[in-house]
């Protein structure tokens, strides 16, 4: 029972993360949310996990939950990666604005001597 509460707390936290992140990356956040809901269901309905696991050929419900957890972790990783890229995008815009502000007009010393 303790494990169920601990896992539920973690999965609820994951669900909250998905809701918060939904504004930035809707697709990945939806996947994370669905995976967290599935995790919660299996934590409290382990027999369903066994039945589903047998149906998909995994064997034990515990293994299925573990796999769901691994997938969840990978999705969170992907989401973080995308957020990092968004931040990189913002950094680029900032650097561009700085470059445009400090534009250096051509002196053309060498060229004017050539022409």
């Amino acid at each position: 029972m303790i494990a169920q509460f601990v896992l539920s707390a973690l999965l609820l936290g994951m669900l909250g993360y998905a809701l918060i992140a939904a504004r930035r990356t809707r697709f990945v956040s939806t996947l994370i949310g669905l995976a967290a809901l599935a995790g919660l269901y299996f934590v409290w309905q382990p027999n369903s996990a066994n039945e589903l696991a047998n149906w998909v050929g995994i064997g034990r419900g515990a293994d299925l939950v573990l796999y769901v957890w691994v997938v969840l972790s990978m999705l969170v990783g992907l989401n973080l990666h995308l957020r990092l890229r968004t931040q990189a995008d913002q950094t680029t815009r900032l650097a561009r604005a700085l470059a445009l502000l400090e534009a250096r007009k051509a002196s053309g010393d060498e060229t004017s001597a050539d022409r």
Partner: peptide
């Protein structure tokens, strides 16, 4: 700049697309 181009400088390397 010396050879006649206007020059913009990125403060660090961002890549060719940027």
């Amino acid at each position: 700049e010396r050879y006649g181009a206007d020059v913009l400088v990125h403060p660090f390397n961002l890549g060719q697309g940027a």
